[in-house]
Design a protein around this nucleic acid. Structure first.
Lengths: 194, 194, 194, 194
DNA sequence: TATGAATGAGTATTCATTCAT
DNA sequence: GATGAATGAATACTCATTCAT
């Protein structure tokens, strides 16, 4: 019962921020939807901005945990870097398709000025940690092209967002094997060594 | 003298929207910076939103004109699709580096909820028209991979934004031939037929 | 052609003031509907208030002229005070039914704070001049009750407005002889000597 | 202490609306006079219009309660319809004289376009309920003329307003028995059966 | 912890009026 | 006389935040 109200606030905020935008959502409406008093929000979060940033980090962490857990389970078994990248890519797309609201939240807030750059960098590092590791591994093995790592990271990010934007706008193709394959190929080919 | 005040308002708005965000910028501050009265803004634009959308379309159009003009000049001379894509990519990167404020405007507002989806779609179609044409040409010639065109478009967009984000964060490499080449390679390889 | 624009402004203002109220009507919208520039309104009228007051006096005068003209024509022929009162009443109701917009203008603005009390008094005196004369005549002849003239005047006014409000809300009865008779009876009986 | 601020706002609004008109009164001035913050007004009323309408209904209700209470006390004792009408009339005039600001509020806003027609109809039905009952009773007993009830109601309203306008403009006669009698006679005779 | 009435600075927008052409 | 772009003071309403209970 203790975490209930805080979680209810986070749930409401997620929905409303996605539906109406950060500035289009009043703290009063978040509290109302969560079924708590307006003042309660400020017992759990120092400010509206703090709530948004907390929400952002929480969801990024949840995403990262989901991917790395699944990845580590398969890691022992699986072989090459490409297999690993493929798994990572499919897991990331799956997560987005299974969590449409959180995915829209990513799309809207990852580049938003409402998220503090501090939070953004923190989240980036958390989430892209395993990507960096994978890229470096691939480069050492001569499987991935030898472009600057920061450039490749930005590119991964940009391609991932492009893919989930595409699947969001064409939901019917989210489970189509050909489309899923195509999205991975675009991603993989860009980084593969030639 | 007639267009002066409207243009002054657009110039001020561009700066302030980029520096402080859309919601962080008051209409009064835009007018003040433009050296006009607060009412004048609303004489030229129906609302703050309308101003933002007008600005967005105007800049996208300017970008598109810049690229297509340069492209058409070289088009007669140049040869294959790859050369054309390379030219397009370098022109687009150049434009971003030469217009840092407008580039930051793109980065911040292209996916922002403050731009109406109508405007976004209009801008996308206007600006990406020549990209679509190029992709289709490359696919007919068997030079580009045969992935869905909408997916490839999103991917181009995502990679372009990734590239200009990278060059923005590492300005010293904007004129480094190796870096520029790398950014194009990431882009081109993702779409090239194998 | 000289009076055209002024009259067009008055016509537009009448419509708009009745439809949207004085404060709900902008001078710009009056000018637009009249097909003139916004500044033109202020060449003909010192202010928005001045336009309203001018309109009020003009219409009251038109009403008064209409009644007194018709009244004077019949006056020579007709007999008693009651006949005269009856004629006056029917003329006044007819005018209202034939000029529904001007009648609504009366209803809305006769007691409105937007009309200067000066204008209101002036208009009252103009319009009720012949009523005062009639009442005094009736009292001298012992046909009308001997109540204070100012009270009787207010009462006439109130009953006239009640009648036209009634016929406005029940338009189908405006030409029903029984209803018209009833409205006059209510009026006449209140003032008749007993 | 809970109703204090809301009531203070209503009191201020009543005064200011009567003194300066609805459009001449800013919400800030209402709040200031009430000794509360500007936001407090909007905590209790959805809008300035909502405040006006609430005020209107409240005062009409207060008026109706005042009349009907006094009427019901005497109802058991008193006799005919005329006595009852006379009592009603005098109570209504008394109320207006004892509540000059609320009476001016009636005069200014009962027909004003600033009151929603919904509110006006509600108020009319609430307040004139007992009048309708009295008229119908009088008609059944053959004491009142058999004119349409809606016409008679409008007429009552118009005559009441005329009377209070008269007594407002000539305050010295408000307690003069002759004048009071005259005002009732004008009212009664108009409706009495002949 | 939780409440929700109260706050008051902040803001987009309106609009009567002016004036250079 | 006529125009209409420009003005800038005025105002309803919002909303993150506080605090007494």
């Amino acid at each position: 019962m203790k975490k209930d109200k805080k979680q209810a606030l986070l749930d409401s905020a997620l929905c409303l921020f996605v539906e109406q935008g950060f500035h289009g959502t009043s703290t009063a409406s978040i509290a109302k939807k969560a079924g708590v008093a307006t003042g309660t929000l400020f017992h759990h979060f120092a400010s509206k901005e703090a709530l948004l940033n907390y929400l952002f980090v929480t969801i990024k962490q949840e995403f990262a945990n989901n991917i790395t857990t699944a990845l580590s389970i398969s890691a022992d078994i699986a072989g090459g870097v490409k297999k690993e990248a493929q798994l990572l890519w499919q897991l990331a797309i799956d997560w987005a398709l299974l969590n449409p609201i959180k995915q829209r939240f990513f799309l809207q807030y990852s580049l938003s000025a409402d998220i503090s750059s501090e939070t953004r960098h923190q989240a980036m590092n958390v989430i892209l940690d395993f990507v960096v590791i994978l890229i470096e591994k691939g480069q050492r093995q001569g499987i991935l092209a030898d472009f600057p790592i920061a450039l490749m990271l930005e590119n991964c990010h940009g391609q991932y967002f492009a893919a989930i934007r595409y699947f969001t706008e064409h939901p019917q193709w989210g489970n189509d094997a050909t489309q899923r394959k195509a999205s991975f190929e675009l991603f993989w080919r860009s980084m593969e060594a030639q």
